Simulated assay, not measured.
Amino acid sequence: MAAFAHGFPFDPAYGHTREELLRVPAPAPPADFGAFWRSAYEAARQVDTAPEVGAPVEERDGVRIHEVSYLSVGGVRLGGFLALPTEGPAAHGFVIAHGYGGRDHAGPDVPLPLPRSAALLPAVRGMSSGSLIPGIPSDSAAHVLHGIASRDSYVIGECVADLWCAASALHELVPALGPLGLLGESFGGGLGALALPWDDRFAAAQLTVPTFGNHPLRLTLPCTGSGESVRAHHREHPEVTAVLRYFDAATAASLIRVPTLVAPALFDPAVPPPGQFAVYNALPPGSPEPHVLSAGHFEHAGTEKERRLLTEACARFFAEHLA
Rank of each mutant, 00 (worst) to 15 (best):
L145N: 12
F247I: 04
L170Q: 02
S129M: 12
F202W: 09
S39W: 07
L173T: 00
G62E: 01
P269Y: 01
L191D: 12
E185S: 14
L78A: 09
D248K: 03
F8D: 08
H6D: 01
F277K: 06
H105Y: 08
L244R: 06
L221Q: 02
A250T: 15
L207K: 14
F247G: 06
M1P: 14
L207R: 05
E172R: 13
A242Y: 00
F10V: 08
V144M: 14
P272V: 02
R38L: 15
P12W: 06
F318V: 00
H105M: 05
P12G: 13
A3N: 14
H143R: 12
E158F: 14
L219D: 02
R18N: 09
L266E: 12
P285K: 05
R308D: 14
R45Q: 15
S72E: 08
A282T: 10
P222N: 03
V258C: 05
K305W: 13
D48H: 12
G213C: 06
A119N: 11
S294K: 09
G147M: 04
L309R: 11
A26E: 04
L114C: 11
L244H: 02
D162T: 04
A142D: 14
G225T: 06
P56Q: 07
T49K: 04
V53F: 07
D248A: 07
A323W: 05
Y246R: 00
R23Q: 15
D268A: 11
R125Y: 06
L163V: 12
P85E: 01
L322Q: 08
E19P: 15
C165N: 10
P179S: 07
A249P: 11
D11M: 05
L191H: 05
S131E: 02
V230I: 13
H6I: 05
G190L: 09
L71F: 11
A263W: 08
H16L: 13
L183D: 08
A313W: 08
R18G: 15
P274S: 05
G93P: 01
A3Y: 09
R64A: 11
L194I: 09
S153T: 15
V271E: 04
G178K: 09
G102R: 08
S69G: 14
V68E: 00
E42Y: 10
A313M: 10
V262P: 02
